[in-house]
Amino acid sequence: MKLFTGLSAFSITPADPSGHVDTAALARLLGRIAAAGADSIGLLGSTGAYAFLSRHERQRAVEAAMECVGGRIPVIVGVGALRTDEAQALARDARKAGANGLLLAPMSYTPLTEEEVFQHISAVAQAGELPLCIYNNPSTTRFTFTDDLLARLAAVPNIAAVKMPLPADGDFEGELRRLRSRTPDGFAIGYSGDWGAADALLAGCDAWYSVVAGLLPSEALALTRAANTRNTSEARRLDESFQPLWSLFKAFGSFRVMYAIADVLGLCEAAPPRPILPLPHRERTRVKDALDRILV
C-alpha cells in the first residue's frame, strides 16, 4: 500500500446529537469508497468532524473502519487535538486499531508559534510510529506553515507528506517546484480544496485529499485518473460537471453540503454536530441540481 498518493476520500462520520458514532452507517460509506477503488480513505479529517468527537468515539470510528475495510484500502486517521499528549494518545489508538497512516493539523485555542507546532507534530509522529501527513489548514487552524517549517518537519522520522491548501495565486506548478526543492525525495505533496483539484492534479501533485470523494467516490476517481493520465480535456470536462457543487462548497462550506448530499442520496441519516446547523432547506434543490450534473 502506497500512502499519500492518488485519490484520498474523506468521509463524514455519521453520529447522533450526543456525538455517538453510527458505526454501521460509517461502515456503509467506507465500503462504497473501497468498492469504487479510491487510493485511500481519510477518516476523522475535518469532513469527519474529528474535533467534535470524544476520544472514545474516535476509537470506535477507527475500529469500525478497520473492521470494514482494513486490508482492502489504506486508512489515514486524523489525530488532531488541542493538547500534545491527547494527540499522541489518539495516534497510538489509531496504530493499535490497525490504521495505515496519520493526519495531523495543529489545533489550538491560543495562537501557536512555529517552534510549538514543530515540537507538537514531531512528538505525535514519534508516538504514532506510522507515516504522518501534516495538515496545513489555515482557514480552520489560523496557522500557516512556512516553507522553512515544512522543510524542517519533512526531515523528522515518520513525517512523510503534507496536505496543502490551494495556493492563493493559483500557481500549483511553482509551489510544487519550490516545496520539492526543500523536502526529501519521496515526500508527498497533495492538496485539499476540491474546486482546485483538477488544476492541482494536472500540475503533478501527489494526492487529492477529497471531500466529495467521501460520498461520490467513483466520480471523483474518474477526475483523478483523467488528470493522472494527462487526459486534460476529460479532466476539464469532469471538473466542469462539478462546478455547481463547488459553488455550493464555497458558499456554505463543504462540511454542511456533504451532510445534505448524504441525505439527498439516501446514504445515511445524520446531521452535522451542533453548533453547526444543516444546510438551509431551501438550498436542497441546488444540491439536487448539482448532483444531477455529476451523476449522469
Rank of each mutant, 00 (worst) to 15 (best):
Val257Met: 12
Phe52Glu: 07
Ser40Asp: 03
Ala105Asn: 02
Pro217Met: 14
Glu63Ile: 12
Leu291Arg: 10
Asp39Val: 01
Ser8Tyr: 00
Ala188Phe: 01
Glu115Phe: 07
Asn228Leu: 15
Thr140Arg: 14
Pro106Val: 05
Arg182Gly: 08
Ser218Arg: 14
Glu219Leu: 03
Ala87Pro: 10
Ser54Cys: 07
His281Lys: 15
Leu104Gln: 12
Leu179Pro: 03
Ala91His: 02
Glu175Ile: 09
Asn158Asp: 06
Leu82Ser: 03
Ser210Tyr: 05
Pro273Gln: 14
Leu102Ile: 09
Asp199Val: 06
Ala127Ile: 02
Tyr209Glu: 10
Ile33Phe: 00
Gly71Trp: 11
Lys96Asn: 13
Ala222Asn: 00
Gly48Ser: 08
Phe255Pro: 12
Thr144Val: 07
Glu116Asp: 10
Ile159Ser: 02
Leu3Ala: 01
Leu44Arg: 03
Leu29Arg: 05
Ala123Ile: 06
Ile134Asp: 02
Leu3Met: 05
Lys288Gln: 15
Gly170Met: 01
Ala220His: 01
Gly78Arg: 07
Arg95Asn: 02
Leu245Tyr: 14
Asp289Ala: 14
Ser218Asn: 01
Leu149Cys: 12
Ser139Tyr: 03
Ile159Gln: 02
Arg92Thr: 12
Leu30Ala: 04
Gly6Arg: 07
Lys2Cys: 00
Asp292His: 07
Phe187Thr: 04
Ser241Gly: 00
Pro74Thr: 02
Ser241Gln: 15
Glu129Asp: 12
Leu179Met: 10
Ala290Arg: 01
Phe4Ile: 01
Leu277Tyr: 06
Arg152Met: 06
Gly174Trp: 04
Glu283Val: 09
Arg177Leu: 11
Pro14Glu: 09
Ser139Gly: 05
Trp208Ile: 11
Ala271Gly: 02
Leu216Cys: 13
Val62Ser: 09
Glu219Gln: 15
Pro138Met: 10
Gly186Asn: 09
Ala25Thr: 05
Ala34Glu: 11
Leu166Cys: 12
Phe249Met: 09
Ser247Gly: 12
Ala154Cys: 04
Thr141Trp: 04
Ile189Phe: 08
Ser46Tyr: 13
Gly128Glu: 06
Val77Arg: 04
Ile134Asn: 02
Ser233Cys: 09
Asn231Met: 00
Arg95Thr: 07
Pro138Ala: 04
Glu67Ala: 15
Leu132Met: 14
Glu114Thr: 08
Ile33Pro: 02
Cys68Glu: 15
Glu240Gly: 05
Thr285Leu: 03
Asn137Thr: 11
Cys68Phe: 02
Val156Asp: 04
Ile294Ser: 01
Glu269Val: 14
Ser241Ile: 08
Asp206Leu: 09
Phe249Ile: 11
Met107Pro: 04
Glu57Arg: 11
Leu166His: 03
Leu201Arg: 06
Cys133Pro: 00
Gly19Tyr: 02
Asp148Lys: 15
Tyr259Lys: 11
Thr84Val: 13
Ile41Thr: 01
Asp93Glu: 12
Ile134Lys: 06
Glu283Pro: 00
Arg95His: 11
Ala271Leu: 15
Leu238Ser: 01
Leu7Gln: 04
Met258Phe: 07
Lys96Ser: 14
Gly174Gln: 04
Leu265Glu: 10
